[in-house]
Design a protein around this nucleic acid. Structure first.
Length: 270
DNA sequence: ACGTCCTCCTGTTCGC
DNA sequence: TGCGAACAGGAGGACG
C-alpha cells in the first residue's frame, strides 16, 4: 500500500521518464477510476504536455499545460511505462499514449485508485488536497498537540488521519509507534507536548529513511519496477518476533486496521 | 463537528 | 482436498 515514501519514489521515477512528453491520446478501459465525467477528463488531457509531477501526502499530481490531474494509488495502483505496441494487461485501466512511442498505463488490481481532473494553478486549494494536514517533516508540533489532546481516538488512528498529518499509512503508523515505544491504543488525550514533538521527529525520520531506500515493497506494489529496500528495515510491521526483546509480536485491530506491536516494548508511561 | 460503519474491488489466506 | 468465507485496507460518504 503506497504511502508517502512509495509515492515519492513513483513521482521521481515517473518524472525521469515522462517529463515534457505529450499525451496524444487516452483510452479509458475501466472508467470508475476517473472521478467525475470521463469524457471531460479525456477532452481536457488529450494534447497536453506533462510539465511537472508533484506530490501532496499520498497523492500524485500530473501538472499539464492548462490543467492538472490528481491520482491516488490507494492500495495497489501502479504506473507502468511500456512501448505502445505492448499487449494490454488484465488490470491496466487507463492508457495514456505519449508522443515518444510509449504508453503511461495505470494498473490497479483492486480498482480502488482514483484520478481526478483539477485546475493547474489551484489543485492544492481544491478537494481533496485542500483538507490534507501537513507532512510530518513540515508539521507544527503545537498544532498537532492540540489536535491530539481533543481526541479520544487511539494514536494509531490519529496517525492515519490524513487531515491531521499527511503521508502516513498503516505500515509507517505501526513503525512509528514501535520506534516511539508507544502502545498503538494510547489515546490522543494521553499525549504530551514532548511526546508529540518526539513523534514528529520520529515520523519524519522514518519517512525520510524509507524514501532514501525507495520505499517499502509490500504485496504487489512497486514503483515502476523498483523494489523498495525499506522492506528489510521494518522492525514491527508483519514481523513475528520483536527485534529488541524477542517477544512474540502481537497483532490486533485498531480502527479496523491490522496493527502489529510488542506488548513488552510498547507500554511507555505518559 | 465528531465518531462509526459501510462501500468499493480482487487476490490470497483461512477454516471447516 | 476443496470451496466458500473472511481478510486485506485508503478514503469518501452516509448516518447518528
Amino acid at each position: 500500500m503506497p504511502e508517502l515514501p512509495e509515492v515519492e519514489t513513483v513521482r521521481r521515477t515517473l518524472k525521469n521518464f515522462i517529463l515534457n512528453k505529450k499525451i496524444t491520446d487516452i483510452t479509458v478501459i475501466y472508467d470508475k477510476i476517473i472521478s467525475g465525467e470521463t469524457g471531460k477528463f479525456v477532452e481536457a488531457v488529450r494534447g497536453q504536455t506533462i510539465r511537472d509531477i508533484d506530490r501532496a501526502g499520498k497523492y500524485l499530481i500530473f501538472v499539464l499545460d492548462d490543467v492538472a490531474f490528481v491520482s491516488h494509488l490507494r492500495m495497489e495502483g501502479k504506473y507502468n511505462i511500456v512501448s505502445t505496441d505492448t499487449e494490454i494487461k488484465k488490470h491496466e485501466h487507463i492508457i495514456f499514449r505519449l508522443d515518444d512511442g510509449n504508453d503511461l498505463r495505470y494498473h490497479d488490481t483492486r480498482k480502488f485508485g482514483r484520478i481526478e481532473l483539477k485546475g493547474r494553478g489551484t489543485y492544492r486549494e481544491e478537494l481533496p488536497l485542500s483538507k490534507l494536514g501537513a507532512e510530518p517533516a513540515f508539521a507544527d508540533a503545537d498544532l498537532l498537540f492540540r489536535q491530539f489532546k481533543k481526541s479520544r481516538l487511539p494514536i494509531k488512528s490519529l496517525l492515519l488521519d490524513q487531515s491531521i498529518l499527511s503521508g502516513i499509512g498503516n505500515i509507517y503508523a505501526n513503525e512509528i509507534c514501535y520506534r516511539m515505544k508507544l502502545h498503538p491504543e494510547t489515546l490522543g488525550t494521553q499525549m504530551t507536548k514532548n511526546l508529540t514533538q518526539e513523534l514528529l521527529s520520529v515520523a519524519a525520520e522514518v519517512l525520510d529513511a524509507a524514501t532514501k531506500l525507495g520505499g517499502t515493497t509490500i504485496h504487489s506494489f512497486d514503483a515502476g519496477g523498483i523494489t523498495g529496500r525499506f522492506q528489510s528495515e521494518l522492525l514491527i510491521h508483519t514481523q513475528k518476533v520483536c527485534p529488541k526483546c524477542q517477544a512474540k509480536v502481537t497483532k490486533i485491530t485498531v480502527g479496523g486496521r491490522g496493527t502489529y506491536f510488542c506488548e513488552n516494548c510498547q507500554k511507555r508511561e505518559m
